[in-house]
Design a protein around this nucleic acid. Sequence first.
DNA 1: AACACCTACAACCGCAGAGCC
DNA 2: TGGCTCTGCGGTTGTAGGTGT
Length: 485
Amino acid sequence: MATNDRGMKNSGGKNGGNRQVVKKGPWTTTEDTILMEYVRKHGEGNWNAVQRNSGLMRCGKSCRLRWANHLRPNLKKGAFSPEEERIIIELHAKIGNKWARMAAQLPGRTDNEIKNYWNTRLKRRQRANLPIYPQELQSQNQPEHNQAQQSLISSAFDPQRTTYNNPPSLSLLGILNPSSMRPPITHQFPLNGNKNFRNPPKGLSMTPPSSMQNSQFSSLPVSVSNNNFGHDLFNSTPMPSFQQTYPDFSSTMRPFLGNIPSNQNGLMFDMGINSINYPSGQLSMPVTTSSSSENTSSGFGSSDANNYTNVGGLSRGNSGLLEDLLEESQTLTRAMKIEERGKSLWENYGLVEKELGDHQDGAIFTEESVYSFAHGDDVTLYNNSESSSSNPNASPGTIFKKEGSLKGTNQVDEDLMCLLDSFPLGVSVPDWNDHNSKIASDDYKAENLTEDSINSQVIITTNSGSKKHELGLEGCCWYNMPSFC
DNA sequence: AACACCTACAACCGCAGAGCC
DNA sequence: TGGCTCTGCGGTTGTAGGTGT
């Protein structure tokens, strides 16, 4: 961007009386220098003070943006690597337009960068009449590929009774991250004396968080048709509205397990969708899907924001914690089912790295691998050919994990599952403000990410006993980021 | 050369949550 | 409790540069 003053404006601002001249438009190198110097001296934050104390004719927001997107250390500039692209796609599939959260999991990248990338990519793919997600990710959820999962789900739920389809699966880490998923459940959903969720108050109105109302819902699959909600593997378990008849959760399912509408991602991982609404709510493009032609779920098909907001269930922002946690746990268990597929989800998508050194035919990114990536687990991407040479017990398509990598995650998840198994119908949900999230973030925080150039394996080193809450994903401190520059 | 279109990027805007008083 | 400020997020817009016609 040019560094002229072309964009200089004398904006009186919206403050009426205090009509301070605020410069807009591109930043000059001089301004950058001033800002950097200011931050060096005073640290970041208190951005409005920058304007007052530094002489910069920029509003605090502008300063913060400039710093965050351009001036802060360890920013990674340049095109996204295939690896990053895969991660973005996977993350977007899971969490939708949560750019900040994506950025938190892509060291050195900014939300703005990711957002721009995605929007550009979206346009490109739309123009090319391509699905925004790899078709493999959709086919991955074909019933024939996950019959067990499907039967499991089907046995528990009748999609027709559901008010809306499922949400993207939020990452466990994101869920546990207080800054992103903190709304205390107890505040939103008063418990009865037994602290039992079984019978939530009728007419309970849950206001979805702004992110749902705006960004997420803007991309909700309002115009979905011919879908097969209820069989969604990737985004998991459809849940009935709390205003609906409850299925029996006692065996395999639990209340609050993913009782949230899906964004576009849910659609993409669903089967048989024919059209989809895209982020920003502006696009709807045909998607080549499976041959599912029957409209089996008008309820789902008509799933929309209103449906969601009016439902008596919980919103993503205020209820997804526990169910997402469980959902993630279940997702992990699905890895072993998916792994047999043996074909890269990304191969046809052009994102498979073909040259992978000793190991390979191609690293395969699965939902789980990205999941693990996002959760700071040690993950070695499995691939088709890696087998006996490196692991005598391995077979093609085996997921390799560093010892103890997923273990920690599974352990906690299992603990939670066991906990809830013990209380299938009523779970006392603690206030999520406190130690729960801290404990979890300790265990799952992705401490370091390196891309092993030799093995072409994404390795996320987990430092399981570390503490440093301040290094949560959302509040990621770039000083601790690995430098990519 | 002129124009249109596309892409990538930068920046702004509005909104909402959190914290403070 | 309400108002104010700060901060962060997501959506949108603007612009430079590249490319094709």
